[in-house]
Amino acid sequence: MKPSAFAERGEKTWKEVEEALNELDGTRGIVPSASRLPTLFRQVCGDLSLAQYRMYGLVLCERINGLVIRGYGHLNRDRSDLMRALRQGVLEDFPLLVRHEWRLFWLMMACFWLPFWGIYLSSFHDVRWMTSLLGAEALDQLQQGYGEEGGFHEMRDNFGSNFEMFAFYIANNVGIDFRTFAGGILGGVGTLFFVVYNGLHFGAATGYVQQEADIDKFMEWISGHSSPEILGMIFSGMAGMRLGLALIRPGQRSRRHSLAKAANRAVKLLYAAAFLTTMAAVIEGFWSPLRLPVFLKYSFGCSLTLGLISWLLFAGKEERRAA
């Protein structure tokens, strides 16, 4: 068959597909012509392989190729229900995933808490180490917030400054989470660095306040938001290590394939990290500066921590796969 005859024969179908695709391009929903699309699409696929095999030339092949790509895109459109996915993710998939990845979880806990306690305990020996680790500016801020004469209540006198700090915590802490994750692609080294660094940093701040300022004010301040914040960091660390391990130990797969597969899994941990860190920022921005009895603040922090622990331990059923 001549190319011209082939084009003439196919033209009607191609036009129809083109119109259906144009209509679909303009909407998120479904248009009447869409019901014919699968049938038409298979015809166009047949036309494409014929045209390619018979070498009908660039113009014809490219036109049909374009139709197939567009049709393929529409037929494979992601139509998953975001809210449903979210609910299932929070209540079932995520806690299961964390329990499944318990080794990474404890690895990250160790990477954070060992440096934390190490540097904190060393503050009893010599507090100058904190000074060199944190820098003068951070020490100043710690003195302002938790020092004898200063106090974090005085620093936050209106809604605006609360909001500013809230936005700052989000941008800063969630940004650190994301970088912790991204650092995983360097064979996990970037992730380890960020987690250990954070452990040192928090440990040094705690140690410095313990020695030179008022540790009670400090505890009151961090009681609310510390558990979601640290958990968020641990999760982003786990996500990053997933990436790194996929490169270091790809198993039976090629590194490329292994990385893509690990990223798909890791990103769920990252969602949880972003969620927890945002939650921490809300608490730190608006709850922690409130002038409330210390007892109330501690109970809030404790119940939040217990809630998070039981969520990780008990949510989701292990046997779901059998169903």
Binding site: D157, N158, F159, G160, F163, E164, A167, A171
Partner: peptide, 21 residues
Amino acid sequence: WNLGSGLGTGLMIAIAFGLEF
């Protein structure tokens, strides 16, 4: 209303963060 200068700064931080990610 005096919302404090922090509100504007906060919004700017939020916008910058949104643009980055």
